[in-house]
Design a protein around this nucleic acid. Sequence first.
DNA 1: CCGGGGATTATCT
DNA 2: GATAATCCCCGGC
Length: 202
Amino acid sequence: MMKKLTLDFYTRKDVIQIARDLIGKILVTHLPEGITSGRIVETEAYMGLTDRASHSFGGRRTARNEHMYASGGSSYVYICYGMHQMFNVVTNEKDVPDAVLVRALEPLEGVEIMLKRTGKKKLDYTLTRGPGNLGKALGIHKGLSGLDLRDERLFIADDGFNAKPEDIVVTKRIGVEPAGKDALLPYRFILRNNKYVSARKS
DNA sequence: CCGGGGATTATCT
DNA sequence: GATAATCCCCGGC
């Protein structure tokens, strides 16, 4: 049974714990094309103010990252490299810009719709592996930034799946080398042995 | 298997 | 004008 995560899940202060807890949950979009969903198998935590890899490091606040400062339980979607729609879960209280980047899903509902959106011919591990790919497959775009994650169009739910603690692997984050020593922080969580996890070395 | 580079454009300086 | 929380393809071994 699917149960939307409630606000108290998101407003906790420990973004690292929330990133870990999101492993195994289900991300759902219900847009005009239909319902698409997938199980979250890879996340990264971004510790707003103190994390050089975060868009909001040092309190930086611009039109792009404004939604990071919303209260926990809303979305932050931004465009990377001019073409990829990156989906983040905003956590903590209002004005504390912590967020979790969702990096990979295992497809569940609406595979046909995802194939149409991505132009792929058949389901394989590339459909929802990597933040750019999953954003495209689920139809996520900048216009969905700032939504409450209990919205009908975009929400996260629990279906009772419970990852064993030993099946959650922790590594450093991907693609954040310019952040210097902060790039080495153990803020990435993946579900062990899942083929949809982005395949780069940790 | 691995590294290099091009795609493509919103965003910020 | 430079950069970017990426992805894909290609060539070399």
